[in-house]
């Protein structure tokens, strides 16, 4: 019983991590349709921001909390810069966007290597986040994973509110659903694109901060997770935040359950097979966006 409960928690927290790294992508890839291969490097930028802040602010707890908004701004600014310099010239040319952003991703990795060195760096986690919380009997939940779960819930809630209830969110949705009609209705599409890219990239920065609690911080950390992030968005259905949320948790629980019964390698294969089978059945993903756009 304890094992089932703690495995379920592990699955949910794997899902939370997946969702956190995919959330920004759900916006830039899912909503705008930009295949940004450098998204993983924005996550890396968030992680290194945490590292840099920690050398300035010695208290691990304070520096972690400060890192969240700062990483959002740093990664967001990098995103805007990328959008402004390169991506906006390549809208509707997905293959070129992909190659260009891949190049940018390699450049950013090398930049990180030159600035911070090839070996991984470490941050100190606040002591409370390295422990766990006893739920009942032998059942414990890791505090860092609870923290990440909370962070994801907050991020999804904030994003949903922003997209549903603000005028800026309405504009984003208008541009996504029918760019031309939005433009003739007076929506400044170029500015909206840039803002969307800022938020999407900023969310990658926050994911980077969270990942410092779980794994290594190094120049290649972004490449290791970018594929998982794309999978979540593709399976969830492009243009739908809800799809990414559900798929992230389903994949997390699926992976941890299969892994418990077999091995990690088998679980990874099982997840991939499940995804391939699912996309055969529903190539458009779990949810589809119905638009009147002809594109």
């Amino acid at each position: 019983m304890t094992v089932v409960a703690s495995q379920l928690f592990t699955g949910i927290s794997i899902g939370a991590v997946l969702l956190l790294i995919a959330l920004g992508l759900a916006l830039t890839f899912g909503q705008m349709g930009v295949i940004n291969m450098a998204h993983g490097e924005f996550i890396m930028a968030g992680a290194y921001t945490t590292f840099v802040l920690q050398s300035a602010i010695t208290d691990a707890g304070v520096s972690l909390l400060v890192a969240i908004p700062v990483a959002f701004a740093v990664a967001g600014a990098m995103g805007v810069l990328l959008e402004f310099l390169l991506i906006r010239r390549l809208y509707a040319r997905p293959l070129d966007t992909l190659l260009v952003t891949w190049g940018v991703s390699l450049l950013l990795q090398q930049l990180a290597r030159d600035i911070f060195g090839a070996p991984n760096v470490q941050t100190r986690a606040p002591e409370v986040l390295t422990g766990n919380t006893r739920i009942a009997g032998d059942l414990t939940m890791a505090n860092n994973r609870l923290f990440i779960l909370g962070l994801v819930v907050l991020a999804v809630a904030a994003l949903t509110v922003a997209l549903r209830l603000t005028s800026f969110g309405r504009r984003i949705r208008a541009v996504v659903q029918n760019r031309d009609l939005a433009a003739v209705s007076g929506v400044p599409t170029a500015r909206i694109d840039r803002l969307t890219f800022f938020i999407g990239s900023g969310l990658a920065g926050i994911a980077g901060v969270a990942l410092t609690l779980l794994g290594p911080i190094g120049p290649t950390m972004g490449t290791n997770i970018i594929i998982d992030a794309f999978l979540v968005v593709v399976v969830g259905g492009i243009g739908h935040l809800r799809g990414s949320v559900i798929v992230a948790f389903v994949l997390g629980v699926l992976q941890s359950s299969v892994e418990y019964l077999t091995t990690l390698s088998v679980a990874k294969v099982a997840v991939f097979v499940a995804i391939v089978a699912f996309l055969q059945w529903r190539p458009q993903g779990a949810f589809t966006l119905r638009t009147r756009s002809l594109a």
Binding site: I14, L214, N224, Q255, S256, L264, S265
Partner: peptide, 12 residues
């Protein structure tokens, strides 16, 4: 238990 090289998910 074995994890693929580079794997960073050790919850299970």
């Amino acid at each position: 238990d074995y994890a693929p090289l580079g794997s960073t998910e050790f919850g299970t």
